[in-house]
Computed example of a mutant assay.
Amino acid sequence: MLTFFRHAAAGLVVLLVQWLVLGRLALWGATPDAVLLFVAWLGLRHGRRYGAIGGFVFGFFMDAIYGLWGIHMFAKTLTGFLLGLFPARERETLLILPRQALVGGLVIALLHNGVVVTLLALESGASNTFMATALWLGSSLYTAFVGFVAALFNVR
């Protein structure tokens, strides 16, 4: 039970950092998604139930912050569930190396942002190059870079 509260507190810290810092560090319209990296870590470390619940809860908070009701919640729940299907050999000692964080973060962000951009395009009825370049590719590369930097500071 203590682990659950530690993960919830860590998730809230990541959510606050995303909202207050990373959401304001846009490069050409692209912003990183640290909450996605946290949900991916939850799914890989604890399995599909934790990944899906974490994706739902933190996606709900992101929807409440950014006013996109249901889009982040669905995409992050799906991502957390799907990553939980790929079990780590030893979940308790899961250590992600920087190169794994870069490549894995890029693949996860490309899939997640593809779902988000598709849902945004369906909701708004708009399709333009900004959605494909900045929101999908740019944000995916930026998220992968943030995952790489976070893995550099991962100390065990």
Rank of each mutant, 00 (worst) to 15 (best):
V116N: 06
S139I: 04
L68A: 11
A64I: 05
I71R: 12
R24C: 06
H112R: 04
A132K: 00
A52W: 11
G125N: 08
T143F: 10
L152M: 11
I65F: 13
G147N: 10
L135S: 09
L27E: 06
L15D: 01
T3I: 06
V117T: 14
I96D: 13
Y142H: 10
P87Y: 04
T133L: 14
V21L: 15
F38Q: 05
L102R: 07
T118R: 01
A134V: 08
M131G: 14
T129F: 08
R24F: 05
G47T: 03
L102Y: 09
N128A: 11
R48D: 14
V39S: 10
L22D: 14
L141M: 09
G70E: 07
M73D: 00
L37S: 14
L36I: 08
T133R: 12
A75C: 11
L141C: 03
G84Q: 05
Q100C: 00
W136G: 07
Q18K: 11
P98M: 01
N154C: 01
A109Y: 06
A26I: 06
R45N: 14
V107T: 09
D63A: 03
F148K: 06
F145R: 02
I108Q: 07
G147Q: 09
G80N: 12
G67M: 03
F74D: 00
M131F: 14
V39H: 07
V103G: 02
V155F: 06
T129Y: 08
L137G: 03
F4L: 12
V117Y: 13
L37H: 01
R91M: 02
F58T: 02
R99C: 01
T31K: 13
P87H: 10
L27N: 04
F153H: 01
T133K: 10
L2N: 13
P87Q: 13
A144K: 07
W41Y: 15
Y66N: 02
S140F: 06
A151W: 01
T133V: 15
F56S: 07
L83S: 03
W69N: 02
S127K: 04
S124C: 00
V103E: 04
L68Q: 14
G104L: 10
L68V: 12
T129Q: 05
T79F: 04
L110R: 09
L44G: 14
L95T: 12
L141Y: 01
L152A: 05
F86D: 10
V35N: 06
V14Y: 05
A150H: 00
F148W: 15
M73E: 11
L97M: 09
R91K: 06
E123K: 10
G29Y: 07
L27W: 13
A64H: 00
A9W: 01
F5D: 00
G59L: 00
M131V: 06
E90F: 05
W41A: 13
V115N: 09
L135R: 10
R24P: 02
L119Q: 13
N154Y: 12
F61Y: 10
A26N: 12
A109D: 08
S124P: 02
N154K: 04
T118N: 03
V115F: 12
T133P: 00
A10F: 10
L20G: 07
V115Q: 09
R49I: 15
G105T: 13
G11I: 05
A10W: 11
A9G: 08
V146E: 06
L83K: 03
F130Y: 12
A9C: 05
R156N: 11
W19K: 11
L82N: 02
N154D: 10
T118L: 14
